[in-house]
């Protein structure tokens, strides 16, 4: 078995390079490595949320105070954020998101499918530019592109990491 490509390290090095000092999250399995890197780095703050839409306030407040932050969440969490996504947008505060997709490639759990297949549609509908990516080697550069759009233009941008990259959680079954 070959070791899976380490896209988390690519994203983390972009986080450092771009002075993103805070990462807000409700975790997902696919984000574990990235979140551990954030947690272990003394200069980057991990903010654990009670629900994902809080992050739209936190990133806006952080930007008002002159600092960069971002959000990491599962595609289901996008559904919790829709109204809140209007908040950074109306102030043109950058809102950068990394979203691990569920409910698509080989999904075991049918309860994830409705939100998974609507994620990109609803994000685009509320004005978030989506950057879907399904090759692990391309996650880092895609994240860099989304970050540039968000922080340089004051836009909301989401990198959607395909379930093909993360793998479906099998709950012990094939």
């Amino acid at each position: 078995m070959t070791t899976p490509y380490d896209w988390s390290s690519d994203v983390f090095s972009e986080i450092k390079k771009r002075n993103i000092e805070t990462v807000c999250t409700v975790p997902d399995g696919g984000l574990t490595q990235l979140l551990n890197m954030v947690k272990d780095d003394t200069d980057t703050r991990l903010v654990t949320l009670s629900t994902e839409e809080e992050s739209m306030g936190i990133v806006t407040g952080h930007w008002l105070g002159g600092k960069r932050s971002m959000v990491a969440m599962q595609s289901s969490g996008v559904g919790n954020c829709i109204n809140a996504l209007g908040y950074p947008a109306v102030m043109r505060a950058p809102c950068l998101m990394i979203v691990t997709m569920r409910g698509q490639w080989g999904e075991f759990n049918p309860w994830q499918v409705q939100m998974g297949r609507s994620t990109e549609t609803v994000l685009e509908a509320i004005g978030v530019k989506c950057f879907p990516v399904d090759k692990p080697e391309e996650v880092g550069e895609t994240f860099a592109g989304a970050a540039g759009l968000a922080f340089n233009g004051g836009f909301s941008a989401a990198v959607l990491i395909s379930q093909r990259i993360i793998g479906a959680k099998g709950f012990g079954k094939e």
Partner: peptide, 21 residues
């Protein structure tokens, strides 16, 4: 920071600002 929307985000916004400043 006057607000006309984003119900529920007053405390999260204040938190984000407090951490940045």
């Amino acid at each position: 920071l006057y607000s006309w929307g984003g119900m529920g985000l007053s405390v999260p916004t204040a938190l984000g600002l407090a951490l940045a400043q």
